[in-house]
Each structure stands twice: as C-alpha cells, then as structure tokens.
Design a protein around this nucleic acid. Structure first.
Length: 490
RNA sequence: CGGGAUGUAGCUUAGUUCGGUUAAAGUGCUCGUCUGGGGGGCGAGAGAUCGGAGGUUCAAAUCCUCUCAUCCCGACCA
C-alpha cells in the first residue's frame, strides 16, 4: 500500500518537509542552510517569475544585473543599513587556493584581498553606487531597475523555501525626483505583489505598513503583504520600501532640476523571493500532497491511460493526442503519461503529490462509452465526462479550481482573524486559535517589544485599509488610533 | 555562539549497553514473469572500506582519544 506520510494535524513542520520531498520540489544541499531547487520546484519559480516580470515591464521597469560581490566599504556608507545586515553577511577574503604539502587544497595566505568583498545580502549599496553616475538631470528620472538574482544571508536556522542561506529573488530599485513619486512607486509595487499573489497564486494577503522595529534597515517606510498559513502563523510574502533620500545621500546621488538646482533623489526598493513557494505550499496543500493553483501549475492536466495491452494503449493514445492538441491550443499544459513502468494507481498518487490540478484517466471502458474520468485535485472529486465535451469541461474546471482555491484561502484568513479587546483575550486567542489578531496598540516600541517577549507574537503590519477607530491599547491601556495585526510569524 | 542528539547500502533504520563467523531489514534500483480503473504479486540480482584519523585488543560498527559533518532546542531574520 501507499507510503505513510505525516498529516498536517500531527506535525505541521514535518508534513511541510515531507511535502517538498514527496513532490520533488527541492532537497537539502551538503552546504549548510542551502537548498537544491529541483526541476519541478524550479518550474513553479519560473511561473512566478514570468508573471511578475511581465508586470514589472508593463509598469516601466527594466531588468539589469549587478555584481554578486560588494566592496565592504560600500556597505558601511548607510549606517542603519549595515547594522541591519552585518550579522549575516558572508565575506570573501581571499582570491586563490593552492595545494598544501600533504596534497590538500588550502586557501593561499598570500592571496588576501586588499579590500574584502561581501556576498550581497541585498544590492542597495552597489546599485546606488552605479546610480550615482547614471543620474545627473531630472531628465534621467525616474530610473526604474529590477534584477533577478541570488542573495546570501547567513541564517542560523533554515527551512526549505522559507528561509535558506542563499535564495533567489528579484529586487527592484528606483530613483525619483520627488518624494511623492517615490512613495507612489513603493505603493504601486506593493499592490502588484498583492495582485499576483491573489490572482495567480490564490494567496489572500493583507497589505500593510511595518512598524519601526520591523522596518527594512535603511528605509523610511516599509510596506508589506502578509499571508496567513494553514497552521495559523503569518508569512511575510513581500516587501516594498520607501527609502527616502537615505541612499541618495549616502552615495551622493543628485540631479539638477529644471531650474538647475541640485537635489538628492528619492528612492524605493522592493522584493519577493523563493519564499513565495513556501507560502504557496502552506496555503493550499493537504495530506495527500501539493495543491497548485492552475495558473502556476507547471503541468495543468495529467492524462493517465489504463490498458492491458499495446492495442488498447494505441487506441487510447490516438484519442488523447487530439485532446492534448485541443488543450494546448488553449494554452493549457498537458502531460500524457504513458510510461509503462508505473501503474495507474501509482501515477494517480504521484500527480496528487505534485499538485497537478486536473487528472484525466482513460481506459477501455471509457473508450467503449465515449467517456473519460476527470478528477480535480482541490476537492478530489471525480466526474465521468462525455468525450465530446471533455476539453471545454477541463477549461472551465481549471478556472473553477483557481477561483475555489482563492475563496477557500480567503475564508480561512477571515475566519482566523480575530478582534480582541483585552490582553487576556489576546493571549487566549493566540494560544487556542492562532491566526491574525486584530488589536489596539499604543504605537510605542516598548509595548510592541513586551508583547513579543511575553507571547512571541509580533506586529505583522498596520493594515493600509484599517479604519480610524479610537480605542485603548490591549497591553498598556494608552490611547490608540486603530487596530494592528499581531501573529506568530515564520 | 551556548545546551542536547545523531552519523551503518541511494533513502529510512536495526545491531553499539556486555567486542567474537560472511554486518541485517524495509524501501528504492536491475532482470524476468503474472499484472494494470487508487502507491501491485511472485522469483532472482546488484548495492556498505559501518562519517574520517589515530589508539586499545588475538579480534572493533561496538571500547578510548581526536576530528569533521548534520539535525533539534535557544539568541537573529525575507
């Protein structure tokens, strides 16, 4: 019988790890904290990339590429920024190896770099060093650059996709003539992220602002999207920063306005990473494996033939070829799995584990009746469908699955967002129910810190759409102008 | 960087307490065969210098010393 896997209800993080292994998304590398993204996992990342990249270009951004290595001196130009990242930077100190006397490869002590290089944890500094020479006039603005890259942050504790020492991401960096324009850019990108998560990944998010303590090092304001995972913990899925003139001043990036006056430019940066895949997994997947929204599934339809001999397989293959062609013409990716080494039952389980949204089974019985069995991954329902209408049925079903996943996840987020009005209630809900807790907060860092220490819950964000509502802080009783969202987070 | 644990076949593990034939099993892999509508049955086969180095002993996966690596728990984080 089937292999036994951990259920979500038994041990959520074990389930998560097994899910990734089962679906063949990624594996641990021998390098501590690093992962190997396997083809199926990478295919999902490529889908995400494709969607985002198109949106970036639509909104006037150009891709470019900056070096992996950053001179140490650059990092120290913006004081807060260094402080934020210093503890997790990998440093290159030498540029050569040699053979030692006993035949081992060792670092050549002679080959010490004069200035050490930092492996980028993010690229603000090296990019702003370039921007300095790219920007002279208001005619050069706005400057809107994006790069797809890997970055390294030497994390203590890592988890596949959610937090790894090296990860893939995109980082946008823009320069603007006015503060207002920069803020609008940061907000625009936040909304693009939110739309992509909701419309493509079927992950509902809360759009908000970070508190000062959770803000990006070097930013004036950090916008974020927060999503709620099945186990009631929050995941920061993307951030967008208004950087003010901090980097412009640190790197002396000035432009001449129409009157010839020199001013520092205003900046933003924004990014999402392979962490999104972790969020995708923890939003939709179940005990049988991955559940992928059709818009991101590398394989949208898997067709499994059931046959006893070659004649039957040939007859099935002939029919399937037509279906496959019809679906492909509609932009649907189809895999016909006629691998004779695996039996149908094995394939069913396999495509479930991989989260393929729709599975079609066709055997001798169906051939005779002019039918096919169509199964949907999200609800695991099966339907016997007339062969003549099966292609339209699948097209509609894919849309329905996409919609259903978002609805289900939205309902979950709503049901697990709880308003509380006292600290006792706060602790009780956090303990028993989890999820987002919407509570009044007095705006002070001390209160935020105390709550974090006592409950491990942090302020995930100040929702952008929160209503102005006078109230009293659940912790201190001091006046508050509105509710913020607390949660335990990944 | 503190506290705890583990390294044995591709993977998961048994064996280590108390040293003793040819290191065992499940799974995966290869071949054959019967099969095929929910992770198949039977038969055969390949696959391990027991993390590494040194030591004790007639004899080491097992005991000792050192070393390397990984995992878990804490402080840090997209």
């Amino acid at each position: 019988m089937g292999a036994k896997y951990t259920k979500r209800s038994e041990d959520y993080s074990k389930w998560y790890n097994e899910l990734i292994e089962r679906a063949d998304l990624a594996e641990h590398s021998d390098v501590r904290g690093c992962m190997v993204i396997k083809p199926y996992g990478y295919a999902i990342w490529e889908k995400i990339k494709e969607v985002l990249d198109a949106k970036f270009k639509e909104t006037g951004h150009d891709n470019a590429y900056f070096p992996l290595f950053i001179p140490k001196s650059y990092l120290s130009k913006e004081a807060e920024h260094v402080e934020g990242f210093a503890k997790e930077c990998a440093v290159v100190t030498h540029y050569r190896l040699k053979n030692s006397d006993n035949g081992e490869v060792v670092v050549d002590p002679e080959a010490k770099l004069e200035e050490e290089l930092i492996v980028r944890p993010t690229s603000e500094t090296i990019i702003w060093n370039s921007f300095k020479s790219w920007v002279q006039s208001y005619r050069d603005l706005p400057l809107k650059i994006n790069q797809w890259a890997n970055v390294v942050r030497w994390e203590m504790r890592t988890r596949l996709f959610l937090r790894t020492a090296e990860f893939l991401w995109q980082e946008g960096h823009t320069a603007h003539a006015t503060k207002q324009e920069a803020i609008e850019e940061a907000e625009q990108m936040l909304h693009i992220y939110a739309d992509v998560l909701e419309q493509y990944m079927a992950i509902p998010v809360v759009r908000g602002l970070k508190t000062a303590s959770e803000r990006f090092a070097g930013a004036e304001e950090t916008y974020c999207i927060e999503a709620l995972m099945q186990d009631g913990k929050a995941l920061q899925a993307g951030t967008s920063h208004f950087l003010g003139q901090n980097f412009a001043k640190a790197f002396d990036v000035k432009f001449a306005d129409k009157d010839g006056a020199l001013e520092h430019v205003w900046a933003t940066s924004w990014g999402v990473s392979t962490r999104l895949i972790g969020g995708l997994l923890m939003t939709h997947s179940d005990d049988e494996g991955l559940v992928l929204p059709p818009k991101l599934a590398p394989i949208q339809v898997a067709i499994v033939p059931i046959y006893k001999n070659e004649d039957q397989l040939n007859a099935i293959s002939e029919k399937v070829a037509i279906l496959k062609k019809n679906l492909s013409e509609k932009g649907i990716s189809v895999k016909f799995d006629d691998d004779d080494n695996r039996r149908p039952g094995w394939k069913f389980a396999e495509y479930e584990a991989k989260g393929v949204p729709v599975r079609v089974a066709i055997g001798p019985r169906d051939l005779e009746n002019e039918k096919a069995e169509v199964a949907r991954r999200d609800t695991k329902e099966k339907e016997i469908v007339d062969w003549s209408t099966v292609d339209q049925y699948i097209v509609d079903l894919l849309d329905e699955i996409q919609e259903n996943l978002l609805t289900k996840a939205s309902d979950f987020t709503q049901e697990n967002t709880t308003e509380v009005n006292s600290y006792d209630e706060f602790k009780k809900v956090l303990e028993e129910k989890g999820g987002f807790i919407s509570a009044h907060w007095d705006g002070s860092e001390e209160t935020e810190q105390k709550i974090k220490e006592e409950t491990k819950a942090t302020i995930r964000c100040i929702p952008l759409n929160r209503k102005q509502e006078a109230g009293n802080c659940v912790y201190s009783g001091n006046p508050s102008e509105g509710r913020v969202l607390f949660a335990k987070a990944y």
